[in-house]
Simulated scan of single mutants.
Amino acid sequence: MTDSMRSRHHDIADDLRQQITAGSMQPGERLLSEAGLADRYKVSTVTLRRALAVLQGEGLVEKIHGKGNFVRRPHRKMLYVGGWGTLDPWTAAEPALRVTVRSTTVQAQANLTALLKVPAGSPIVETTCLSYRGESPHGLARIYMPRDLLPAGVLDDDSTCRDAVTRFAVLGPPPATFRETVCARPPTPDEASALRIGYASVVLSITRIATDSTGRVVEATFLTFPGDRVDAVFITHHGPDERQDPG
C-alpha cells in the first residue's frame, strides 16, 4: 500500500505540474481546496498533501496559512552586498517589501560564545528579521550583539534602528572589518517553515562577523535566503599600499 500511495501522489504532482507549466493555472491562482482536489483525484487528503508537498518543494506551489495553496509567482530577486550586509537600497525601500522585526535578550551559549568571544551566559540581544514581498518571505536574518553594545532604542521600537535592521545592516558604529562565510545548503526545519520552502530546497547561508578597530566582535549575523530569491555581490578594494604609485 505504501508503494501504491507513493506512486499515486507522484502522479497527482505530475498532473498539477503539467497544468502549471502549460499555463492552464496562472501565477497567483488559488488551487482547489485540499478536500476538493482529493475528491477530484479520488485519493485521501494525506495522499493529496504529499503531492502538494512535492510541488511546494519545487517552488511551483505556495501554501499560505489560512488561505490555501497558490501557484507561486516568479520571485523578484534581492541583492545582498557583501561587506555591508545590506540589501540594495532600491529593493529594500520598495513599498511592497515589508520586514517583521523582533528583538529579545538571551544568554550566550554554544557557538555564540565562540563567535562573539564572550563568556557563556553573557547577555546578548537577538534580533530576528523576516522580509516579505507580498505574502512571500524573501529572507531571514538573526542578528546578535553583546547587550552593552546595543544602540539605544533597538528594544524600544526606535525607527532609525529598525530602518537599519530592515536592510539587514550593522546596528552599531561602522565596524573596522567584516568576515563573511557563504555556503549553499538545505534549510533547517525552522528556516523552511519561516521561508515557506521545501526541505529539498537550497538556501544561501551567510554568516557575517563584524569587528571593531580594537578587535572586539561587535555583531554576529546569520542570513538565510532561498537560493532563487537573492543574488550576492562581493567587491574587493585594494588597500593604499597595494596601489601602484602613478608618479
Rank of each mutant, 00 (worst) to 15 (best):
R162W: 09
A184T: 14
E191Y: 08
T160R: 10
T181N: 08
T166V: 11
D190C: 03
A164I: 11
A184V: 15
L195E: 00
V182Y: 08
Y199Q: 01
D190L: 03
C161W: 09
C183F: 13
A164M: 09
R179H: 12
P175I: 10
T177S: 14
C183I: 13
D163L: 15
G198E: 05
S159M: 08
V165K: 08
R179P: 02
I197R: 04
I197Y: 00
G198I: 02
C183L: 12
R196Y: 08
P173V: 13
F178H: 09
A176I: 04
R179C: 00
A194N: 02
L195Y: 01
P174C: 05
F178C: 09
A194C: 02
A169Y: 02
R196C: 09
A194Q: 00
P186D: 13
S159P: 13
R185M: 15
R167I: 01
T188P: 05
P174W: 03
D190T: 04
P187F: 04
R179E: 07
A164F: 04
F168S: 02
T160I: 11
P173C: 11
T177W: 15
L171T: 01
A194K: 01
C161N: 07
P175A: 09
V182E: 06
E180V: 13
L171V: 06
D190I: 00
R162Y: 04
A169C: 07
P189V: 08
V182A: 09
I197W: 04
V182C: 10
A169S: 05
L171D: 07
P186R: 15
A192W: 01
V165R: 13
E180G: 14
G198N: 07
A192D: 00
C183Y: 10
T188I: 07
T177A: 14
A169L: 05
R167D: 07
C183K: 10
L195F: 04
D190F: 01
P187R: 10
T177G: 05
Y199V: 03
G172Q: 00
I197M: 04
T188D: 11
R179L: 12
T177C: 14
F178K: 00
V182N: 06
A164P: 00
P175L: 03
T181K: 11
V170E: 08
C161P: 00
D163Y: 10
T166A: 09
V182K: 00
D190A: 06
T188Q: 11
P173G: 07
